[in-house]
Design a protein around this nucleic acid. Structure first.
Lengths: 247, 247
DNA sequence: GAAGTCAGGTTATCCTACAACTGGCCAAGT
DNA sequence: ACTTGGCCAGTTGTAGGATAACCTGACTTC
C-alpha cells in the first residue's frame, strides 16, 4: 500500500451481492433468455440458485422493479414487464472511454441545441429574452474575471431551451449537459490570458448572434447562427484532440 | 359491473412500502432537501422515521443505489451521490395526459429524425443504403396489404439513424419511439380504403425523397425532405386532434 | 512521526416468522 | 347451468433478531 495514497483515491468498493444479482437478471432480460411477460423463478428458488439469502434477492428485485424491468404480484410471482416502455434512456458514462464517444454525445447534444434555438425563436416571450440576456451577461462576467464561463455558457443554452416551452428539450439538454460539457476553449495551457480572453470574446459574439436571431423571432437565422457556433466549437475540440494524440 | 368489462381493465396493484420510500427519498434529493454528497440518516433511523422495518429501507436504498442516486459505504453510511451523472433520462409516461404532451415529445423526436437524416447523408455506406431501401420496401408491403405501416415506418427512421454511425442517435430514437408513435395517418374511420392507400402512397413518396437525398450524400436536401415530411405529418396529427376535440 | 491496535458505528447478509394477496377449486344456492 | 362464497396452496411483503464485514478515528507503542 503506497504511503502517498490519499483519501480521494480510495479504491471503490466492489459491488455487493444485490448489485451483482441486479446485473445478472438484467442481462438475462436483455439477452433474450427471459422474454417479455415471462415469470421469473420464485424468490426462494433464485436465492438457492444464486447461493444468496432471500433478502439479497428481494433487494435486487426491488431495484429492477423500480427500473420498470419487472412487475411483482404478491402471491403470484415476479414477471418480466410486458413492455419496456418504462425503461429510461441512459448513457453509460463508465463506457465512455474515448474522445470518439464524447464527440458522438456532443453531436446529439448539438442536435438538441440547434433545433432548440429555432423553436425558441418562434415561441420566446419577453421574459425568455430577458433570461437569455441575463445568461449572456453571466457568461461575460465569467470571462471578465478570467474564467472560461463554461457553466454560464451551458446556462445560456438552457435558457434557450426553456424558451422552446418544451420541457422535454430542457430536461434532455440538462441530462446531456451533465454528461458532456463541450470544451469551447483551446487547451488553457497553450494560450496566455490575453489570447484566451480574445478567443472567448469571439465565442461571445457568436452567442450574441444567436440571441439576436431569437429576439427577432427568426428561426432560420437562429438555426444558422447556432450551427455556425456549434461547428466552430466542434472544430476547436477536434483540433484539441488531434494535438493531444500527437503527444 | 358492466358485462362488457374485459380483463385488460384490471385495477393496478398499489405500490408497496419500498416503492413509496424510493419516491420519498428521490424527492428529497431532487427538491434540494438533500444535497450532493450529503449523508442520509442511518438505515435504522430511516426505518424509525418512516415507520417501516429496516428491510424495507434496505430495499429502497438498493434501488436508489442501482439508479446511481446514492452510494453506500459499509460501516459509514449512505450518501447522496457526489454527482448525478448516472441518473437516466426518463419521460414519465404516466404523466403524459394530454395530446399537448404527445406533441411536445413528438417535437423532440422530430428533432432527432431531422438531424439524423442530414448526418446519415454524410456518413452512409452502401450497406446503410441497402438497409434503408429494405425498410422502405417493408413500408410498401405493409401498405399493399392494407395496413398503415406504422412499425415499418419507424424501422425506416431507425435505419436512417443507424446510418449516422452514432449509436446515441439510434438508442434515443428507439427510446422515444417506444413512447410516441406519431400517427401519420388520418383517422382510419374517416377514410375509405382507397383514400387511405392514396394517402399512404403520398407519405411513401416523401420517404423516397428522403432516401434519394441520403443516397446522393446531400445533407441539406435530406434535411429539407425530412422537415417537409415531418411538418406534413405534424399537420395531419394537429388536424386529427382538432377534429377529436370538436366531438 | 510512523505503525499498529482497538473500539465504535454502520452497512451487508442471513435467518425465522407471520401477514397479505392471488388464483384455482369445490360446494351451496338460485 | 350459472353465480357466489369459502377454502387452500403458493408466493410475495414485512418485521425483527443475529452476526459478519467494513471503515474511520483515537490511542498506544516504538
Amino acid at each position: 500500500m503506497p504511503s502517498k495514497m490519499t483519501g480521494n483515491t480510495r479504491i471503490a468498493p466492489s459491488k455487493n451481492l444485490a448489485d451483482i444479482l441486479i446485473s445478472r437478471i438484467r442481462e438475462q432480460i436483455f439477452d433474450g433468455e427471459l422474454q417479455l411477460g415471462d415469470q421469473l423463478p420464485t424468490e426462494q428458488e433464485m436465492a438457492e440458485a444464486f447461493g444468496v439469502s432471500r433478502t439479497v434477492v428481494r433487494e435486487a428485485i426491488a431495484a429492477l422493479r423500480s427500473d420498470g424491468l419487472v412487475r411483482t404480484r404478491q402471491g403470484r410471482g415476479v414477471f418480466v414487464a410486458s413492455n419496456l416502455d418504462n425503461r429510461p434512456f441512459k448513457i453509460d458514462t463508465e463506457m465512455m472511454n474515448s474522445a470518439e464517444d464524447v464527440m458522438l454525445i456532443m453531436e446529439l447534444r448539438m442536435t438538441i441545441e440547434l433545433e432548440a434555438a429555432a423553436v425558441a425563436a418562434e415561441r420566446r416571450t419577453k421574459q425568455d429574452i430577458a433570461v437569455i440576456a441575463e445568461a449572456l451577461e453571466a457568461v461575460q462576467k465569467s470571462i471578465d474575471i478570467g474564467e472560461e464561463g463554461i457553466e454560464a455558457d451551458f446556462e445560456f443554452h438552457c435558457a434557450i431551451a426553456a424558451a422552446t416551452k418544451n420541457p422535454y428539450f430542457v430536461d434532455f439538454l440538462k441530462y446531456l449537459g451533465r454528461i458532456v460539457i463541450p470544451p469551447r476553449y483551446l487547451n488553457s495551457a497553450v494560450l496566455d490570458a490575453d489570447a484566451m480572453h480574445d478567443y472567448l470574446t469571439r465565442v461571445q459574439t457568436e452567442h450574441r448572434d444567436i440571441e439576436a436571431a431569437i429576439i427577432n423571432g427568426d428561426s432560420e437565422s437562429a438555426r444558422q447562427a447556432t450551427r455556425l457556433h456549434l461547428a466552430n466549437g466542434r472544430e476547436r475540440f477536434r483540433q484539441q484532440m488531434k494535438e493531444k494524440t500527437g503527444d
